[in-house]
Amino acid sequence: MKKIYCNIKKCLGCGSCEIACAIEHSKSRELNKSIAESPLPVKRRKAEFVEESVSISTGCHHCENAACVTACMSGAMYKDKKTALTQHDKDRCVGCWMCIMTCPFGAVTRLREEKIVLKCDLCPDRDKPACVEACQTKSLFLGTLKEFTKICST
């Protein structure tokens, strides 16, 4: 399964991934227009400070045994049978926050008013997710765990 990995050694925590993610999930898909949208576009990726001069960009890990899918009481959070990605169907979401309760990465965003959640969908309209493309240090990587392991050791 291909998903997004972050090489913490390379990440500067600059936040380019966050911005690219929010724009990609906006109506206009343009920075200057998207900041005027209502509701404001929401990012599904976070650049997080780890310790001095260490950062990580993190989001949904599409876990093999996804705790959010197990906990979801409405069936809105589910595993795509073909891709094994964790997907979210907002039309079935009831805003029970079971996924927020169980996500080990804090990767599910709650929309209080709408009573639904959002998370990484791996940018279905693009070849490469927006965050990976926007990453200036090439710490973000799209591929399998095997490929990521190989690239990190070289």
Binding site: Y5, V50, E51, C63, N65, P104, A107, L145
Partner: peptide, 27 residues
């Protein structure tokens, strides 16, 4: 999550799921 990354790296008994490998490997 960033704040627990060092604990995950150090932990000997937990965090066995493949999803934590990225942190353990690259931190």
């Amino acid at each position: 999550y960033g704040k627990i990354a060092p604990l995950i790296k150090k932990s000997k008994r937990g965090f066995k799921e493949p999803e934590f490998k990225e942190t353990i490997m690259t931190l």
